[in-house]
Amino acid sequence: MAKTYDYLFKLLLIGDSGVGKTSILFRFSEDAFNISFISTIGIDFKIRTIDLDGKKVKLQIWDTAGQERFRTITTAYYRGSMGIMLVYDVTNEKSFENIKNWIRNIEENASADVEKMILGNKCDLDAKRQVSKERGEQLAVEYQIKFVETSAKDSLNVEFAFYTLARDIKAKMEKKQEASNPPGGRTGAHQLRANEQQRKPTSWLSRCSVL
């Protein structure tokens, strides 16, 4: 069977419990919002294929439980990720402060070149806001990570966030490809992917390719 995509990107959503990781993912994968979600226990995933500059990019997005105790099982799955969304809740100061801990977690467990993005979710709840947009931006500048405020409920910036992260991963991949391949060489998607697999250590995520 022919592959129905040109690239496969593995993304990961992390952040404190209750910040809306599952809702963001549900908005992105189903374009819907549900007030009656259950808390995530363990690890879950969703898949959506997007069109990026004429290429079909399959996003395999892993959703994780936020409570600290789950980290012993979730951090094992950082390694194979090519992009990580760090999510906090703009109505919860603590979840914002914890972004630093989550970044440390990434540094300890993910590949050094993983693309990152910070999302300040629930920005529709202005009356309950505890973290200003400026503070979010400041943190992002400090860590040199892209940042955007989102609302899974109002469908604000969720698409933008995933497209941006995916585009950054794609750009980085192509740049690497150019550097390792002398000009004039074949630069087909197939070759890119093969190269990608070589670059990453064998992990559970890299085994997941779809026919």
């Binding site: 549900f26 189903e30 374009d31 819907a32 919002f33 549900n34 007030i35 009656s36 979600f37 469908s155």
Partner: peptide, 23 residues
């Protein structure tokens, strides 16, 4: 996981319409 299953089947195919309610 199981709950999401139900929501998916209730919402049906992906539509443009915002599915905020679960009525």
């Amino acid at each position: 996981m199981s709950l999401q299953k139900s929501v998916k089947s209730a919402g049906g195919e992906r539509t443009d319409q915002d599915n905020t309610s679960i009525c």
